[in-house]
Design a protein around this nucleic acid. Structure first.
Length: 417
RNA sequence: GGAGGGGUGGCAGAGCGGACUAAUGCGCUGGUCUUGAAAACCAGUGAUGCGCAAGCAUCCGGGGGUUCGAAUCCCCCCCCCUCCGCCA
């Protein structure tokens, strides 16, 4: 949820929302609705005060005086109810409009839509095409079984098997080691949450059609650990001196992938279920931009230590999503497609999500909303895809990146016989 | 899943229609005393919204309702505890 006071007073704040494609008519109507709402709230407050005072007098009154005082308070109540109805309607209008305004983009965010991203840097040499693409190699090496998964679960599911499982646990161990050194607290969060949590984390109503719903239980399978991590400090006031508080959540992620028919159908690049380690930070508002750079730096460390050629892009305003004020994507080179494909992303939500969640800090001079940030540490199935291609040797074997070797237990996954 | 008991300020815990302006204790902050500290004593200690301010409003798990008036009564939901059943 955006900050109405800033929307009212700061031109740059408003400009950031416009940059994201918000209709300026919506903003104007919101500001008008806000003025109307505050005005009627003020009137209702005064009416409440008068009514409260009248009611209290009844308690102190003698039996004789009571009937008259009760009828006086009753009269006040009738006019109060009218004002309260008007107040409710006015607030509903504000609520309806405010949800249509996304978190304003930071001034450093490029203008435009999905294609208008800016390449920040490109690291490593693009790998030459390999003998096998990830889908073929995965089946050949007994790492991925999609065919049998289809029989049991449908398309876009897979069994990860053999060396793929070793790699998965190695990646998780490796990433947790790195994150714990950077003060992240490891978490295995719930993957089922209530509707309220989905709304507060900003995924409903926008992404509702991407989420699996559990029949009969009013619970939803989360598409990322971010959802449950965001709720960790709901309604809390955190000691400002202890910020940032960082969490690293490991979870399976479930996504319906509605509207992606025919897209990325081979292998495990895009599946309904995958595992992921996600970073989440509850941060002092004064240092959240540095924190975003820190998350990005960690992401780069992970990807580059896996010997994957990648680039960093600053996502354009129109492609940010409602909550992010700024977002970086890391994209790894995928030889079989001759293209960079997204492997991780990180965002600063500033106070947009914290406001709805009421996650605050406190210090000697008062309190305020924290900033929240999140970023992928490692999305397992995509990382496996990139490893299977970029680390593929001439004979179809896979060279295990050095940083993973001590966890996997071997240096190489043998090629097809 | 069945039966009962509960959710109150940072914490513990009383209150069960009108002095709740939420008792009391602990904690915290300041003061007195002391060489210093502890103890004791005294005083002060919630959040959010609107407002330049004075102040007003809202908040006793969440949402509705009854009433002039609700922490208190009624309905729905959520959560916790105890016992029973089931279970990795």
């Amino acid at each position: 949820m955006i900050d109405l006071r800033r929307l009212r007073n700061e031109l740059s704040y408003r400009a950031g929302a416009i940059k994201k494609g918000t209709d300026s008519d919506v903003i104007n109507r919101l500001l008008e609705a806000d003025i109307a709402s505050r005005s009627v709230t003020h009137e209702a407050d005064e009416a409440r005060a008068a009514h409260n005072a009248a009611s209290k007098e009844i308690g102190r009154a003698t039996a004789d005086e009571r009937p008259e005082k009760i009828s006086h308070a009753g009269t006040l109540k009738i006019s109060l109810e009218k004002l309260e109805n008007a107040e409710t309607i006015a607030k509903q209008l504000v609520e309806e409009l405010i949800l249509q305004v996304p978190n304003p983009a930071h001034e450093s965010v490029p203008e435009g839509g999905e294609e208008e991203f800016i390449v920040i840097k490109e690291v490593g040499e693009r790998t030459e095409p390999r003998e096998y693409d990830h889908a073929d190699l995965g089946e050949l090496l007994g790492m991925v079984d999609s065919e049998r998964a289809v029989k049991n679960s449908g398309s876009r599911f897979a069994y990860l098997m053999g060396p793929a499982v070793r790699l998965e646990f190695a990646l998780i161990q490796y990433v947790f080691d790195l994150l714990e050194m950077n003060d992240f607290i490891p978490v295995v969060p719930p993957v089922l949450v209530r509707e309220e949590m989905m709304i507060d984390a900003g995924f409903f109503p926008t992404d509702r059609n991407q989420v699996y719903e559990i029949a009969g239980d009013d619970l939803f399978l989360t598409g990322t650990a971010e959802v449950a991590l965001a709720g960790l400090h709901r309604g809390e006031r955190l000691d400002r001196a202890k910020l940032p508080i960082r969490y690293a959540g490991f979870s399976s992620c479930f996504r319906r992938e509605a509207g992606t028919y025919g897209k990325d159908t081979r292998g495990i690049f895009r599946v309904h279920q995958f595992d992921k380690v996600e970073m989440f930070s509850f941060c002092d508002p004064d240092s959240s931009w540095e924190e975003l750079e820190k998350l990005r730096d960690l992401q780069e460390k992970i990807v580059s230590s896996l010997n994957l050629p990648y680039r960093v892009i600053a996502v354009a305003a129109g492609d940010l999503g409602a909550a992010a004020a700024k977002k970086y994507d890391l994209e790894v080179w995928l030889p079989s497609e001759g293209a960079y494909r997204e492997v991780t992303s990180c965002s600063n939500y500033t106070d947009y999500s914290a406001r709805r969640m009421s996650s605050r800090y406190k210090d000697d001079s008062g309190s305020g909303l924290v900033h929240t940030l999140n970023g992928t540490a490692c999305a397992i199935s995509r990382t496996l895809v990139f490893l299977m291609e970029n680390c593929q040797m001439e004979d179809g074997s896979i060279e295990v990146p050095e940083v993973l070797q001590k966890y996997v237990g071997y240096e190489r996954i043998d090629g097809p016989k």
